[in-house]
């Protein structure tokens, strides 16, 4: 589904990714772990097409399309979903309006008709319940005044509504207590399916207790330096990231 080949990228003249390779197939869950500053968040932003994140080499193929030829919204419409580490607050746009605009756009790109307002509201309320967000969050400004956990649940809500092919979860566990983490993880697990892939970016092993990955990759100094199964994460937990640096050096 996603094949990243020798990807290099920089942010404001600072090289962050240096030849990253990754192959993700439908139905798989890949965890990307690594020390701070390894380029974990950059990877998500580069794939989603954030301005200022410049691709300087390599390619990324997403379902037969070259990802970097697409605008950010086209990538989203094609089924790539980035769950943000720090979702931005947008006062003045209600969450409901935002969600409908987003769902309409994605449906339109799939040749589906827009949902009627009534149907959409019903659907949104249903999903709200599933992620344990009170319904009045739909009327509030996008992420406006939400707690850290509420913002993450709002990301999850969007993910459920958009039904993407590939989900990239960027440090979804940051700032969450155990209860909130469990709610989010349950939501993510419910979305696991044979046609859907996930990339879970995290610094801590703890999230992987709840979202169990098929593969674990270690990202350091801008490339994947080690790949393995679930056990690699546990090893990292035990030994920390220090030994990675030694190995890479």
């Amino acid at each position: 589904m996603l094949k990243i080949d020798n990807l290099a990228a920089q942010v404001e003249d600072k090289v962050i990714l240096r030849g990253l390779n990754l192959d993700v197939k439908a139905g798989e869950v890949h965890a990307i772990m690594g020390p701070n500053g390894a380029g974990k968040s950059t990877l998500g932003h580069v794939l989603a097409g954030r301005a200022g994140y410049e691709v300087t080499g390599g390619s990324a193929d997403f379902d037969g399309q070259s990802l970097f030829d697409l605008e950010p919204e086209e990538r989203a419409q094609a089924g790539l979903f980035l769950a943000f580490q720090y979702p931005v607050e947008i006062p003045g746009v209600s969450n409901m309006e935002f969600l409908k605009a987003s769902v309409d756009a994605v449906r339109a790109s799939r040749g589906q008709e827009a949902l009627s307002s009534m149907d959409f509201i019903k659907l949104a309320r249903e999903k709200c319940q599933a992620v344990d967000l009170p319904q009045d969050f739909l009327k509030r400004g996008v992420n406006e005044g939400f707690s850290g956990g509420e913002k993450k649940r709002n990301e999850l809500l969007q993910m459920m509504l958009l039904e993407p092919k590939l989900c990239i979860l960027d440090e979804t566990d940051s700032g969450l207590d155990i209860d909130a983490l469990q709610v989010v993880a349950n939501g993510v697990n419910a979305l696991r399916s044979p046609d859907r892939a996930m990339i879970v970016v995290t610094h801590y092993q703890r999230l992987l207790d709840y979202i169990v990955p098929d593969y674990v990759h270690v990202l350091a100094k801008g490339k994947i330096v080690k790949s393995g199964g679930r056990e690699l994460a546990l090893e990292l937990e035990k030994q920390g990231y220090g030994w990675i640096d030694e190995e890479v050096a």
Binding site: A76, F84, F98, V106, G141, Q158
Partner: peptide
Amino acid sequence: ALFYFLARGIRREEAEVMLNFAFINE
């Protein structure tokens, strides 16, 4: 904020309209 809209598949023109609206609607 604009990138957040784009990352959710909303067209750039539409995102700008919505953000302009929000700027006042706030």
